[in-house]
Design a protein around this nucleic acid. Structure first.
Length: 943
DNA sequence: GAGCACTGC
């Protein structure tokens, strides 16, 4: 996908130079692609020449920036040339792809989704061609000059978004914003216009090709996301009673602040609704208090009391000895005793959320965290026998199904942040809906922030929706007038525009990755340096997940007086962390997304346009502490027509091996007809079944085998679990545990700072171990272990301490699980063949053979692939290799590779590889009929 | 000779 979405064509009426008439006619008539590309090139060349002339004849300016103009312009131009070339390349790729797909799948029945995908590609290509034509006919001004009164410029504007604006105005939406806009105008006109003057007259006197003006971007204000300000914002200070001790006072003020939350006013209605309905969809903005208050209200209403119907059947438990310091009294005065209380469970998609919310609730209820209020996340269970309110990650609840399939100890389940649609949440939906059918007393609350609660309601048999207005300040949304070709550049320009025209308040810029953040950082530094003391101080702070912790913390430090913070962030700032003090958000409209191609098992990270839901989430980040503004670097038309409503749920773009195994071990046999809110792609399910069968986790009747049951104990991909189980045979479980743990921390072991690439590479190569990358990882871990897990050692060897620590945690967990599957921990470090054979037992499916064309071919899909340049086998050519994963980056690469012998395949996976004479090539056995049946069933269901 | 968004068990 191209970095810039295909833009709509415009009706254009701008000047065409007469010399291009013939060419233009040709272009219209000639539909041949090659011709058109040639034509574009010629036009571009001519345009470039004109630009050059313009700059040659440009009068010398008194502006001090002007002296550096040519360098700047050259840089800009090269960027433009690069982008143009990239666009051509991308269009060409798209065309090829379409031709390929039409050829490849002409006789194949495609699923609806696949058909839509092709349709979309064709549509995108058409748009791109149209756009190209429009560009050829127009000497485009890249940016339009702002005049600060966006609502008046629409009169003779040729862009569609203005029509939309008028529509909005006709609908009265613009009227709602009147006050806001007045304030806005005042602010703009009182701001110091050093740079990017808003004075119309001054502007018209300047030459059109003026550098500074060329850099400005015009925004159109569209809508304001309303806030619920009212009195809710106002927190009444508790009257200080001198006789109250510190603790009580704190508790009292906490109780008072609970009452200021928006949800408080709806408590009674909400409780009535929950009493009357088994399933309720709760829609509320973040900050409405639902996550912290809902559980407490439910507790106060008595939802934790033991299930009286079952009391008689159970034996009386011994009285426990905690009554003395028990602070919790049920509303009717009974103390928690005798019978096990029922639990209120609340799931969160993230670990930190589960922890921090639990801590907050414990504080509000004045109990110790981990007792009545607790949380459970991977590696850490902070709950006890007496826990009645339990926060946990969604994956944790999913695992609880394994030990308690009906979740009998819960009286209420709250699935919070359901709109995020994580893989685990999606699976939970189906399971929880099912148990609600045979447990009529169980209450189910699905809590979501977006406006698509309807979908949840439909899924849960038309469950009622309860809406809680949020506590949020209004956010004004601005769109660009024209599409931006280079969104990093546009983002940088917008930051500077905000900095010189808007009142103080921090800026948050959403970019797609580390590289973009670094680029933007450099650009901003350079431009602010040039502006010198003309502008106030601008503090630029990057944030992304792999940034070292000490750097991450810096974003939370407040800006010094008179200065402004600019935070350049990845998607991490969209949901995972919240930064106070943000008044302005800049949203280029893209993010990186992992895609999974089940046809060849290849993963890729691609830059894709975000969804409307995501865009709104980003905008909301500007209105947490005060009214804010969000600048979207795309047109309102693009928002309306090119962005999907919601992001594709994770279940549709990820490998499902582990989930299928988990569901199988829960006794859910029919995964094809499982109650999915959105079903996963057929290919993904099929591949999961096929792999589980090949691994021996499923038998010919597609039933879970004993091996499969043991594999399901591990929170890992089935191939990794199988590797662990196979390590028993080769007596090297200790080594395999380490390797598996290292593999599961996501390629972030080696640290490679930009200014020390050579040193870092040398350090990495120092760890290389004969046999392959898995053994290299083992080597790294063991050396680290020998230093007693030293931080300093990591630093010296360009190893990421955080990743190593995580690997260690994973390893500890896996080691504990080994006991459950009754495998002894045995170490055999010298037997690298045994270690590799164990890996082979789990990953025989991921074999590639060197082929005549100088590339490797995967045995299963005959996909041409290469060894990743970071691999220690990169400059060797083993005949057979096993890879951990396939990734598509600039090329198709195998990442984490080991060398194996041909015979090992037949030894470790005789059921998968045909046994023939030695030296013969291994041929993959045909899959048994039963898998064909699954495929047929899948096809029936998906057609 | 590459290039890694973010979660989670």
């Amino acid at each position: 996908m191209a970095a810039s979405p295909p833009s709509p064509s415009f009706d254009n009426q701008t000047n065409q130079s007469s010399s291009s008439d013939d060419e233009e006619a040709n272009a219209r008539l000639e539909s041949d692609i090659r011709e058109r590309n040639e034509f574009t090139k010629r036009l571009r060349k001519r345009d470039d020449e004109q630009t050059k002339k313009k700059f040659k004849s440009e009068p010398v300016s008194r502006d001090p920036h002007r002296s550096k103009l040519s360098v700047e312009e050259l840089r800009k131009k090269s960027r433009r040339v690069y982008l143009a070339a990239r666009k051509d390349k991308k269009i060409h790729e798209l065309e090829e792809e379409l031709i390929d797909e039409e050829y490849l799948f002409k006789d194949v029945k495609l699923t609806k989704r696949e058909e839509e995908n092709i349709k979309f590609k064709r549509y995108a290509l058409d748009l791109a061609h149209e756009h190209e034509k429009a560009q050829q006919m127009e000497n485009i001004d890249r940016y339009h000059m702002p005049d600060g009164k966006s609502d008046e410029t629409s009169k003779n504007d040729r862009y569609r978004e203005d029509n939309r604006y008028s529509d909005a105005k006709a609908n009265g939406q613009a009227g709602q914003n009147f006050e806001q806009r007045k304030w806005e105008d005042e602010v703009i006109h009182t701001a110091l216009p050093h740079f990017g003057s808003l004075d119309k007259e001054a502007k018209s006197n300047q030459p059109k090709y003026d550098y500074i003006l060329d850099e400005e971007i015009q925004f159109v204000q569209q809508l304001t996301i309303p806030g619920v300000n009212e009195l809710l914002q106002y927190k009444e200070k508790s009257k200080i009673n001198e006789h109250e001790d510190e603790n009580k006072r704190k508790h009292r003020s906490l109780q008072e602040s609970r009452k200021t939350l928006p949800i408080y006013r709806f408590r009674e209605d909400l409780m009535n609704a929950i009493r009357d309905h088994q399933v309720l969809i709760i829609e509320g903005e973040t900050g409405s208090g639902k996550t912290t208050q809902l559980t407490q209200y439910l507790y106060e209403e008595g939802y934790c009391e033991p299930d009286t119907e079952n009391v008689e059947e159970e034996e009386e438990e011994e009285e426990e000895d905690y009554d003395d310091d028990d602070n919790i009294k049920l509303p009717n005065g009974k103390k928690k005793k005798e019978k096990k209380m029922m639990m209120i469970g609340c799931t969160q998609p993230r670990r930190v959320a589960a922890m921090s919310v639990a801590a907050r609730v414990a504080e509000e209820m004045n109990v110790k965290l981990g007792r009545e209020v607790g949380y459970a996340i991977r590696f850490e269970d902070c709950s006890s026998e007496r826990t009645i309110i339990k926060y946990m990650t969604d994956g944790m609840l999913l695992r609880e199904f394994l030990s308690e399939p009906d979740l009998a100890s819960y009286s209420v389940l709250i699935v919070d942040e359901a709109h995020e649609r994580t893989l685990h949440t999606d699976i939970l939906f189906g399971l929880v809906k099912d148990i609600a059918r045979f447990r009529p007393k169980l209450k189910l609350l699905i809590s979501s922030a977006t406006l698509d609660a309807e979908k949840f309601s439909q899924f849960f048999d038309d469950a009622p929706i309860f809406r809680i207005p949020g506590r949020r300040f209004p956010v004004d949304i601005y769109y660009t007038k024209a599409p931006e070709a280079d969104y990093i550049d546009a983002a940088v320009v917008t930051v500077l525009q905000i900095h010189v025209t808007q009142p103080l308040g921090d800026v948050l810029v959403f970019l797609t990755g580390q590289e973009e953040i670094e680029t933007a950082n450099e650009m901003l530094l350079e431009r602010t340096r040039k502006l010198g003391t003309k502008i106030k101080e601008l503090i630029i702070l990057p944030i992304y997940s792999t940034l070292p912790s000490d750097m991450q913390i810096r974003i939370f430090e407040p800006a010094p007086p008179g200065a402004r913070k600019v935070i350049l962030a990845t998607n991490i700032a969209e949901t995972s962390l919240t930064i106070d003090g943000i008044h302005y958000v800049i949203d280029p409209g893209f993010c990186k997304q992992k895609t999974y191609n089940a046809r060849n098992g290849m993963e890729a990270l691609t830059i894709t346009p975000i969804s409307k839901a995501s865009a709104n989430q980003r905008a909301g980040r500007a209105g947490r502490v005060a009214p804010g503004k969000c600048f979207r670097l795309y047109t309102s038309w693009a928002y309306q027509h090119e962005l999907d409503d919601n992001s594709i749920p994770e279940i549709q773009r990820t490998n499902l091996g582990n989930v299928v195994l988990l569901l199988k071990s829960l006794g859910i046999n029919d995964l094809v007809n499982f109650d999915y809110m959105d079903p996963p792609p057929m290919e993904t399910l099929r591949l999961a079944f096929e792999q589980l069968y090949a691994l021996g986790a499923l038998n010919h009747k597609v039933e879970l085998t004993k091996l499969g049951r043991r594999m399901a104990e591990f929170p890992l991909d089935p191939m990794l679990s199988k590797t662990i189980l196979a390590s028993e045979t080769y007596k090297c479980s200790a080594e395999i545990l380490t390797i598996v743990s290292m593999l599961s921390v996501n390629n972030s072991i080696f640290f490679r700072p930009k200014d020390k690439t050579l040193l870092a590479d040398t350090a990495r190569q120092g760890f290389f171990t004969p046999g392959g990358d898995h053994l290299t990882l083992l080597n790294v871990y063991n050396q680290w272990k020998d230093t007693n897990y030293s931080t300093q050692w990591c630093y010296e060897n360009f190893i990421q301490f955080r990743s190593m620590n995580r690997a260690r945690q994973v390893r500890d967990q896996l080691e504990a699980l080994m006991e459950r599957v009754e495998i002894e921990i045995q170490s055999n470090p010298a037997d690298t063949i045994g270690i590799r054979k164990a890996i082979c037992s789990g990953f025989f499916y991921h074999t590639a053979k060197f082929s005549k064309n100088g590339m490797y071919k995967t045995v299963r899909h005959q996909q041409s692939v290469l060894i990743h340049p970071n691999s220690c086998l990169f400059d060797q050519i083993p005949r057979y290799v096993i890879y951990f994963e396939l990734v598509l980056t600039t090329k198709e690469y195998m990442r984490q590779v080991i060398e194996i012998e041909n015979e090992w395949l037949r030894e470790t996976a005789p059921h998968f590889y045909k046994t023939k004479k030695l030296d013969d090539d291994n041929k993959v056995k045909k899959m048994p009929k039963v898998l064909g049946k699954i495929k047929a069933e899948l096809e029936r269901n998906y057609s």
